[in-house]
Write a protein that binds this DNA or RNA. Sequence first.
DNA 1: CTGAAAGCGCTAACAG
DNA 2: CTGTTAGCGCTTTCAG
Lengths: 336, 336
Amino acid sequence: MPNRAVTLREVADLAGVSVATASNALSGTRKVGAQTVQRVVDAAAQLGYRRNEVARSLRTGLRNTIGVVVPDVTNPFFSEIVKEIEGRANALHWSVVLCNTSFDIAREASYLARLISSADGVLLFSTAPDDAAVDPLIRLGVPVVAGDEPILVPGVGSVVSDNEGGALLAARHLYEAGGRVFGLIDGPPTMATARARVAGFLRGLESSGLTVAPEHHVRVPYSLEGGREGMRQLLQSTTPVDAVFTCTDMQAIGAVFEAVDRGRRIPDDLLVCGFDDISWSSRIHPSLTTLHQDAERIARRAFDMLVSMILEGAEPSTIVLPVDLVERESTRRRPG
Amino acid sequence: MPNRAVTLREVADLAGVSVATASNALSGTRKVGAQTVQRVVDAAAQLGYRRNEVARSLRTGLRNTIGVVVPDVTNPFFSEIVKEIEGRANALHWSVVLCNTSFDIAREASYLARLISSADGVLLFSTAPDDAAVDPLIRLGVPVVAGDEPILVPGVGSVVSDNEGGALLAARHLYEAGGRVFGLIDGPPTMATARARVAGFLRGLESSGLTVAPEHHVRVPYSLEGGREGMRQLLQSTTPVDAVFTCTDMQAIGAVFEAVDRGRRIPDDLLVCGFDDISWSSRIHPSLTTLHQDAERIARRAFDMLVSMILEGAEPSTIVLPVDLVERESTRRRPG
DNA sequence: CTGAAAGCGCTAACAG
DNA sequence: CTGTTAGCGCTTTCAG
């Protein structure tokens, strides 16, 4: 057994053909005689040949690799997206290079720069897209599809949820469930999803002639701990709130836990509605009413768009997916 | 602005030097005159040059990429590991190719084969390691470090937790907390971690002269739904159990939810202890007593070992990390 | 249907 | 200190 990678040259020699024929026999690019193919395949198997993907990439210009940029793989919303993308890429025998930015803009930019020469395309789930970092990829013809948060650079595709429409539903639902004094747990100001959800929520309240008092509008990170902090602030406000909308489920779950730890009963004392519908939202007690974003579907549509851009030179488009309200215990008051 | 990648040749021409000098000026491999460096750097900046990593890899044989194989990124234990590895790889400007096997042995094998020519090393978090699939990497000198589950192939490094010792602690703790009739939620038979934890647990019970009845030993997948199923079976057994040990926290969380849904009070009616200490274990109610496996530390030690194998040709070793019992609500009975 | 040869972009000898 | 040259292993013209 060799302790160095077997090359196509060695396979070709053993099979008694040229490297060109060996290449074609193995990849099927060009027609090769049946028994010649057999000899090559046998030789390859005997030697344990594996095609060198790096050499192939240099020659073809295709890397069979896509980059997936996410802020935090640990967040279930993103880990589900990553898993779905990875599965679909694998079906095409493509590799996925994972880029976890930890919400760091500089890190995101440096990843994007690196992906230019190492990926055929990029799926960008950014929380604070930097147009200047995305621009070079577009100029060099590296397809980019943004998921979750849109990116306003021409040439970039987008697959996003109807954030504003969903948040509007949340406002109406909380009102109908009995909420009258509303708290709003917002995200960092840079995030387009947060802005859209806040706008939709406020618009939804408007139709009932209501609004959110400044002391009831708090800005915290997109995380469970952020949600706890947000709820802590809301519970300390002078006028108590009786319904809370959060921009993400991780925040909502944190908010629910904090409220419960401080003796509030949900939904009796306080209604809570999140946004995302991550798997844990239905697992916790009380289970969380939220807006269902189909992570799998977002991932699938984004991936499919990227693939058609890479393979067929398809034009990027913008896809807006609907979100549905999923009513669970956190807003379901027992009659009476 | 060019719409095709700028090559080193173009940079060299603009700077009026040879490609070799341009290469050395940019990478610093060989000493180059200060003002020559300046000219090259300026030219590169002006043209927007980015080194082609594929070409570099073909030449140097280094890919600056590692493969990370996990069964399920969606599982918090693995997503934390992946995040930690990704962060450390990024500090070295290395890329991480994510390989999610979905517990599929064939898929794992195909990933490993592909990684031979596309990664400098592999971190393998397998649940059912296939020696035959790992062997070619070792023969070809691709370093492999197994995490979580050991792999019995010479040349493979391992970073594992003291599964048996931890489970032994669990048995003693459950006994001291008042458990007398023990249930055991086991994993699939192929998993070495499950076998080690079961062995440790049974050994721990032995010292109290106890054992687990066959009807109280159930085998279910390593997942929340698996845990629910396991608890369902235990609650249907003829003799009721009063203490349950599960091989993983995801199973334990599922078991707790199922028991609570069926009206059992934890810890009053039933003690539950898991293994892993994923972040959700301290978040749920009742919070989960478990054995703390430091995912970050496992990831770090495995990564560091792999890097020293790749960079310095270090010999692989086996590291066994201690686990600690973390006592929480699920086994803490109120006095009386 | 098959072979010879060029060359993807880069780095590492080897010369000067 | 810098330039010339030879390939890394593969695919793809171009000839036969």
